[in-house]
Design a protein around this nucleic acid. Sequence first.
RNA 1: GUGAGCGUAGCUCAGCUGGUGGUAGCACCGGGUUGUGGCCUCGGCGGUCGUGGGUUCAAGUCCCAUCGCUCACCCCA
Length: 422
Amino acid sequence: MSIKALKGFKDILPDEVGLWQMIEGKARDIFQRYGFEEIKVPILEKTELFVRTIGESTDIVEKEMYTFADRNGASITMRPEGTASVIRSYIENGLYVRGSVQRLYTIGPMFRHERPQKGRLRQFHQMSVEVLGSEQAMLDAEVMAMAWLLLQEIGLKASLEINSLGCPACRPSYKEALQSFVKERIAYLCEDCKRRSDANPLRVLDCKSDNCQDQYTSAPSIIEHLCEDCSQHFAAAKQGLDLLGVPYSVNPSMVRGLDYYTRTAFELITTELGAQGAIGAGGRYDGLVKQLGGPDVPGIGFAMGIERLVMLLGQKEKRASKTGLDLFLVTPGEAAYEKGFQLLQTLRILGVRAMTDHEGRSMKNQMKQANKQQARFVLILGDNELESRVVVLKDMLSGEQETVALSMDFENWAAAIKEKII
RNA sequence: GUGAGCGUAGCUCAGCUGGUGGUAGCACCGGGUUGUGGCCUCGGCGGUCGUGGGUUCAAGUCCCAUCGCUCACCCCA
């Protein structure tokens, strides 16, 4: 074996690209229905951007970022997620104007240096959606409903789990309450939870150990510790989902891996992907823009993992239906080949998807290629046809073929052929 | 970072307790059809058995190392 792709980096081969295009096309369609505009942001950013937004003590920043010095010695990082860059751009380009609400989405690759496994790669792709400038709970519901609709229209089933993570006013007191609860029974907990109880106490709640979960059944719930404002906000968000008929369940132990989340947090979960069940996740991040030096503007967003969507869909339909050619030109004979080469260009200029064989293969072989390319029609132009100024047009579905006069006025002739086949 | 499983043809895989690498399937090329695809049929191409050591008369098979892949933990999309 010669050079292979990096660990955790995958080629997306032509057979699979159809699914990708379907998913991205559907996403763009739906995002636009909700008034979102696309923004394209760089893949490399200053390392500091991610450290300040995602949080210094998160796993992503501590051990998963592709960070290196560029030729001038500046520390730069390949983005591990999309929100930070979008917000940076929002601030840098002054996309905020008084009273405006920006709806933005971006689609592209993200990079995290983790051990790859099913549904987890080092380069993966996300659709990242952000709304900046509103803290209305109805917006939370609208954003979740949009994510929900996207999955529906793609043809996937997932459950929506929501929670509220509180705000700087109420989260600290909950954290304390939880921490003291955990400390009381620390002797009964797994090693991971012992560690987490200091580093990130909220995380103990989604521990996978049954034993730990038994201990946590009576743990304090964040929802009961929300301040008045957060509590009302959460209630309103749920009401919004009810109004839109989007099913959900409240999961009080759901936590997010990034530090910047506040209030509404949500995940779209499937059980069909092995250990990596989250196909989309997001939430509100009200303090983030200000923290990055922008105005005090609230925000909410989510990201969906395209590879995970592709995997789920791929299980259903092995390969997306390939877009075949309109026409394949078969040219037995050299003189015919040259003339055909010209005709082909004329047809393509008129918008016909057409191909031919340049290898001088047998007619039978060329027919096989036409079939493999799923060409709807085959145009046969051999030396015989050339001599009698005709071409043979064969319908590959019915197998029927007709002889058509070949005019030397290529443009009119090609237009006539196009009429017949499209 | 931790643990487990697996590396045989381009792909998917047989290969038993060590005894000559499979008429295997798919794909590819050609014939059956002197210029007509799909289906069928016949033939062909294709392999340092991941790599390096070791045990043995003999290693794809057993042992060790190494590299790679996969899955799981952690964490996450």
